[in-house]
């Protein structure tokens, strides 16, 4: 079949302005997008830059967008993208500095962030010389998380990274999970401290896009939630968002509805003078518009006792 690839081009040594090159290529039914790219490079245009290594979906190197959908060029069958039109658009991943054509800056995008979560095992010094005895179910969970290709598709799908490029992102935080939940690792608390820093677990908005995008079914969003749960469990709850969570739940549990004034104060932290000062203008405006009654009272709602019971039941079950 005859396919027209419309490929994103950018040459930093020329004007650096993005454009597109069109290539018409004859490919067989089974061909992948990478087959098309290799054919273009071999037969039509040697100057086209893209990355590829294993060429069979193991290594994550050829991640790009095909008709705006992020995937691996080496596993994306051309036929799946040409049902409606024999044209295929190829672009680098979104929101990442492009170096040339389909080549983008992996370091800034992902590798540096993965290094930031200290991605190595810190075993107990007193551990045995021989193998650790561990159930395969534990290993199976780690194998699942470790089956991450470092392909960046979860980061590509993330809705936080486009507004905050410094967010660690689902790939790095999933890597943190891999160590937090390894029974051989003894750096658990220190790891949670790293993960809870600003730009870490609490900046995730759990939109589940990362889980939707992951080609390995690793479910990065759920992994981030698991780290948060663990942080709560061991009492690492000092980050503002964690306090916000705690206060929100406590308020509803006690009164049956949200106490917004208390939420604001407790989220900032009662000893955080600077943070509390920042609330004053908002509080003043609220009072001026009659939205903060004086005296500030927060009565229980009818049925609050039943809501409390629901909370307590949930807490018992979680234990």
């Amino acid at each position: 079949m005859q396919i027209t690839f419309k490929v994103y081009r950018k040459d930093p040594e020329k004007d650096g302005k993005p454009g597109r090159s069109n290539y018409s290529v004859e490919l067989d039914e089974e061909a992948t997008v990478l087959d098309g790219l290799l054919k273009i490079r071999d037969e039509m245009d040697d100057t086209l830059a893209f990355r590829a290594s294993c060429a069979r979906g193991y290594c994550g190197e050829c991640t790009m967008r095909v008709n705006y959908k992020a995937c691996f060029a080496c596993t994306a069958k051309v036929s799946a993208f040409t049902k409606k039109s024999p044209e295929i658009l190829l672009d680098p991943l979104r929101n990442i500095p492009v170096i040339k054509d389909l080549v983008f800056d992996w370091d800034a995008f992902m590798w540096n962030k993965i290094t930031a979560v200290k991605p190595w095992l810190e075993p107990d010094e007193s551990s045995t010389n021989g193998e650790n005895l561990l159930p395969d179910s534990t290993m199976a969970d780690l194998r699942k998380v470790m089956s991450c290709y470092y392909c960046g598709l979860c980061d590509e799908g993330c809705t936080v990274l486009p507004v905050d490029f410094d967010f660690l992102g689902p790939a790095a935080l999933t890597k943190a999970y891999r160590f937090v939940f390894d029974p051989r690792d003894k750096a658990g608390r220190e790891r949670l401290k790293i993960a809870e820093k600003p730009k870490g677990i609490w900046d995730c908005v759990h939109c589940f896009e990362a889980s939707e995008h992951c080609p390995r079914g690793i479910a990065p969003t759920e992994r981030i939630i698991s780290i948060r749960d663990k942080a709560f469990k061991v009492g690492i709850t000092n980050e503002k968002v964690a306090r916000h969570h705690t206060s929100f739940a406590a308020s509803v549990k006690e009164s049956g509805w949200l106490d917004e004034g208390r939420l604001a104060l407790e989220s900032e932290g009662l000893t955080n003078i600077k943070g509390l000062m920042k609330l004053l203008p908002t509080a003043a405006r609220a009072m001026a518009r009659g939205k903060a009654p004086i005296p500030y009272l927060h009565p229980k709602r009818p049925g609050a006792e039943q809501i409390k019971k629901i909370f307590e039941k949930g807490e018992r079950e979680k234990k």
Partner: peptide, 11 residues
């Protein structure tokens, strides 16, 4: 194994 390789395990 001590560096974290998730070897498959027996019962």
């Amino acid at each position: 194994e001590h560096w974290g390789c998730p070897w498959s395990r027996d019962a």
